[in-house]
Nucleic acid binder design. Sequence first.
DNA 1: GGAACGATTGAT
DNA 2: TCAATCGTTCCT
Length: 205
Amino acid sequence: MSVPIDFFECDVVSLAKKLLGTFLVHETQEGITIGKIVETEAYRQDDPASHTFGGKTTRNQAMFGKPGHAYIYFTYGMHYCFNVTAEKEKIGAGVLIRALEPVERLDLMHKRRLNKFHAKNNSLLQTNNSGLSTRDYCSGPGKLVIAMGIIKEMYGHDLRQKPLYLVLRDSIDVSIIETTRIGISQGVEKKWRFYIKDNPYVSKK
DNA sequence: GGAACGATTGAT
DNA sequence: TCAATCGTTCCT
């Protein structure tokens, strides 16, 4: 059963908190990976840190579309980040998924994290970080995109449908920490980063 | 057309 | 603490 649309059609800060504890599932030919969302950040249109602050563009248009869809962006010349769109259509907002607790197919997550595709020379490079811990498979926005096998072609995908979708948690029994967002230079005072208290899979040590 | 800059990560 | 690395945005 897919997530109802009204789950996503609320203010983005509320959605960022509601997404904690929910499961992200990706079904690919390699297998089905599942992670529990343990860290999120909210980005609103009236927020100078948001990609939507300057209005609708080619890159951010997904956030101006329907809620509950994927907004994927490329950053620092080498990483992709995954967001869940929020608010009503025409309002640009999204929730950055910053960390997951690995739940299913950790072996596949590990393999994906170790195999880095180098687009420049089309070669498959093996990184030498064989000591990669389970805690670090998905402990950052760029890492979880790799571990879950999320690709830029999933931009705009409806997250209530296969192959990439969300499954709601049963109960709300987690303690949520509210703090400031990471890696931004504007809007630094807003406490719109949320994570599950004491969860070892969040992005900061 | 050009330059500056990232909602990051991993190595030093 | 710092380099890697390139698409988007903004300025000329």
